[in-house]
């Protein structure tokens, strides 16, 4: 379970990136977070991973306060970052091998890695190739494979579908659904409204560090998400006079 309680982050330069963010991702649930660039999605994930200290509030992974016991908390979370380059001199398998060892999975063999890579849709010829010349999508798949191998009960994904072709995007959604069925808590930041609607159990809209809307899939069943998104991003009670929000 992932839980943010009144999470606030003000950067050193005074920028208020997160402002009292509170949400919860239950086991077996996919939570999709939308928001314009700079809304605070990456900041949220960085706080969950203790990469930066929170100004106030708490981030909990499996009820462990990440600021108090970060190493223990990180044992229970997999992470797919926004743009990961990985080790260019290593093959896909070598990259996977190293990170699975860091994740504490040291008993895995090449067959296991091949299986995971197949699952994320990386073409077989690429398994043993140096990833130096991999496309963004291929790297993204490898990043997802790394998260899969760790097999933690919580998953944080930062815009994971950017760079994936339609076919791979579909496969990726299947993986997320499988994760949910295994009882994992999945938090995904994304711009991909169409795909998110297909799988999300709950959806949140973020604007200037605040969660301005949160609805369940059932509540959204008959709404047009794009309209809703634009509507929420344009005019927000409490912060009405923000001209640049209308683009």
């Amino acid at each position: 379970m992932l839980e943010a309680i009144d999470l606030t982050k003000r950067y050193e330069d005074g920028e208020l990136a997160l402002d009292g963010l509170t949400f919860k991702v239950e086991p077996g649930e996919i939570f999709c977070m939308f928001g314009a660039n700079g809304a605070g999605k990456t900041t949220t994930i960085n706080l969950f991973l203790n990469f930066i200290p929170a100004t106030s509030g708490t981030a909990l992974i499996e009820s462990i306060d990440v600021a108090k016991d970060p190493l223990k908390a990180k044992r229970h979370v997999s992470f797919v970052s926004e743009n990961v380059m990985l080790y260019g001199n290593f093959t896909a398998i070598q990259n996977l091998d190293y990170f699975s060892r860091l994740a504490g999975k040291r008993h895995l063999v090449k067959k296991d890695f091949a299986e995971v890579l197949e699952r994320v849709g990386l073409q077989k010829e690429a398994f043993d190739r140096r990833i130096k010349n991999f496309s963004k999508g291929m790297r993204q798949k490898l990043g997802i494979a790394i998260a899969l191998v760790k097999n933690a009960p919580n998953v944080l994904l930062d815009e994971p579908t950017s760079g994936l072709d339609p076919q791979s995007g579909r496969e990726f959604l299947e993986i997320l659904v499988q994760m949910r069925d295994q009882g994992k808590s999945v938090f995904m930041s994304t711009h991909d409204i169409f795909r998110a609607k297909l799988i999300a159990d709950r959806i949140g809209f973020m604007r200037k560090g605040r969660l301005v809307m949160m609805k369940t899939a059932a509540e959204l069943a008959h709404e047009d998400l794009t309209d809703l998104y634009i509507q929420y991003m344009e005019q927000q009670p409490g912060a009405a006079a923000v001209p640049q929000a209308g683009m």
């Binding site: 991973l49 990469f51 190493l71 223990k72 990180k74 044992r75 979370v77 997999s78 992470f79 970052s81 743009n83 990961v84 380059m85 990985l86 080790y87 260019g88 990170f99 860091l102 994740a103 504490g104 990043g143 790394i146 760790k150």
Partner: peptide
């Protein structure tokens, strides 16, 4: 850090 591997490595319980 530039390769993003530092983040990925430290998302595990690696001191």
């Amino acid at each position: 850090k530039e390769k993003g591997t530092l983040k990925l490595a430290l998302s595990n319980d690696v001191p």
